[in-house]
Amino acid sequence: MNHWMFNCRKVTRMVSDSLDHKLPLYQRFGIRIHLMMCKFCSRYRDQLLLMRKIIGPKMDKKETNLSIKLSSKARERIKRLMQNNRNEVS
């Protein structure tokens, strides 16, 4: 299992890095070649991407998002607590 120049351990590190910053060309190229031949590293990459997709902030369409509002009950409670808090301080 000698996939070109990078071994699986190195590839997993680089795939992780690629989620945080742009990799140099030779690394991107090396990863691509390696992934074509290694199903385990391909799985690993798919898993990291899936994790990002499901764990990351769940953004729906903008309109749906804007319809998310603090309930009036929570709003009143927070206002009241803040008022109490300020009265205590002053």
């Binding site: 071994n7 699986c8 351990r9 799985r43 898993q47």
Partner: peptide, 14 residues
């Protein structure tokens, strides 16, 4: 990974 840097605990298909 093993000493050669190959998978020892391989990722499973999700």
């Amino acid at each position: 990974f093993n000493r050669k840097g190959q998978w020892k605990i391989r990722p499973v298909k999700w």
